[in-house]
Design a protein around this nucleic acid. Structure first.
Lengths: 118, 118
DNA sequence: TAAGGTACTATCAAAAATGTAAGTAATGAG
DNA sequence: CTCATTACTTACATTTTTGATAGTACCTTA
């Protein structure tokens, strides 16, 4: 998660694929190491930054920040800052974020199946 | 797609997550740039290496090979070599590979929805 | 004899993702 | 004044993924 180089072949490939196929578009958004894990927890309700951090084993603050920013940009999570000291920031899923539920469920089913077949 | 360093923190994190959550386990297998695209085409039937290459815009032979090898290792595609010259190699989904269909469908639905809401 | 087709492999380089370690602001508690 | 708390940010290093380019083996056909 850093800047993407909009001139790279890789960037062009990703774009080409996700332009035509909604499933690849989706995969580009929620794919990667943390997004699904974060969404999974947020499906059960709002969480503060620190709470998420505790739930996600070994995630660094930097990564968590980057991921949340990206999810926010993609309109999957909503960020609410309370003007307090020390600060309090809450994250929750947006309506379209909530709609990820069936996707996660199917992934879960398939994952379980695949694991069993080992 | 190269060797992974089994001592890295990143490796440990991925493992920890996919050990507990089947959906993250699944995402580790089919996530990434090409696996879903490849499976999408193979859902419609067998394809030869060269046919896949034509369908996947801009993929390099190296990448296609790497991806197919990995999908084979994960028992999602089956590779059949015909002893001919020039060589003929066919790829098709395994039974568990076929079962990815609902996953892909849900991703597709969600992707379409998300795209519309722009 | 030379060229062509197919499915690769090998090397090197670049880009992208992730990790490490340290620091910051603001305020209330002691 | 000093320290603790919370949600970050910054700079740098490492790891992982992807790309570019050039080969290779084998037989068949011209």
């Amino acid at each position: 998660m850093s800047k993407i180089k909009e001139t790279s072949t890789n960037f062009a490939n990703k774009k080409a694929l996700s332009d035509e196929c909604p499933e690849l578009y989706a995969s580009n958004i929620i794919g990667g190491q943390w997004p699904l894990a974060i969404c999974g927890y947020l499906l059960n309700g709002k969480l503060r930054f620190g709470e998420l951090k505790k739930k996600l084993p070994n995630i660094t603050e930097r990564m968590l920040t980057l991921q949340l920013r990206r999810l926010e940009k993609d309109r999957i999570v909503k960020r609410t800052v309370y003007a307090q000291v020390p600060p309090r920031v809450e994250y929750e899923l947006t309506p379209i974020g909530q709609k990820l539920k069936p996707v996660i469920e199917e992934l879960e089913k398939w994952g379980t199946l695949h694991k069993q077949s080992l």
